[in-house]
Amino acid sequence: MTEPIVRYQNIQKSFGDVEVLKGIDLDIKPAEKVAVIGPSGSGKTTIIRLLMTLEEPTSGDIIVDGKNLWKMEKNGKMVQANEKHLSSVRSDIGMVFQHFNLFPHMTILENCMTALVNVKKIDKQEAKQRSAEMLEKVGLGEKLEMYPSQLSGGQKQRVAMARALVMRPKVMLFDEVTSALDPELVGEVLEVIRDIAKEGEMAMVLVTHEMDFALDIADKVLFLDNGVIAEQGTPQEVIANPENERLQNFLQRFNN
C-alpha cells in the first residue's frame, strides 16, 4: 500500500454561517486520478481550493507528501502555518482555473516562463525552452508570441494548463476547466487532459461536469453532496452503477 500524496482528515469549512464542507476524509495516492462530481453548492470546488491554499479550512488537517499543509511545528507545538511553510508545501501543487486566469500583460510564452524564472529561479534560457516545449505539447507551439486576448477560450485554457504543468507539480487540480468554454471548444481541452493523464506520474483532481470524461480517465470518483462525500469508488461503481438515490437523480440530468 503506497502512502497517499494528499490526505484530508476531517476537513470542515464554513463561509460565515454556511457550512460548505462537513468533515471530509480523503486519500489521494500518487498518480491517482480523482474526479469530483456533485451538484453546484455541494462544496466540490472548495475541496481543491483548500489544497491550493486559496481558502483556509475551518478545522481538520490536510497532509501533502507527509507535511501538514496548514499547520507547522514550532517549539514542539502545532501552530498555524506561516507563508514560508505554505509556500514550501504549495510548490507540489498546481491548479488550472475555470476562468483561465492568464496574465493578460504577458505573451503566452511569458505566461509559462514567469513562475519558472521568478519562483523556481531557473535560468531564463532553460525556462524559455521548457515553456516552449510544453506549449508545443498542448498544441500552441506556433503562438508563443501572442497575447492571451488573441486566443480562443480553448486555447487560453491550454496555455493555463501548460503554465501549471511546466512547474512539474506532484498534484494537479482542475477546477471545472471546461465550464467557461463554448461547447465546440471543450473537446480540445479534454484531449490535452487525457494526454497528461496517460503520462501517469502526476496525481490529478478534477472537479468536473463531464461524466463521460470522468468515466474514461478517473481511477476514483467522488460524489459530493451537501458537504459530505456521499459516495465514492471506481467510475464503474459510481457513474455506471450508482446506488445512492441522490446520485442517481444527479446523473439522470446528464443522460439525456
Binding site: F15, V18, T46, F100, N101, L102, F103, P104, S149, G227
Partner: peptide
C-alpha cells in the same frame, strides 16, 4: 492589451 480578457470573474465559493 484587451481589458475585456475574462481572466477569471471571481468564482463564488460554493455554498455562498
Amino acid at each position: 492589451f484587451d481589458k475585456k480578457e475574462p481572466s477569471g470573474s471571481k468564482p463564488i465559493p460554493e455554498g455562498k
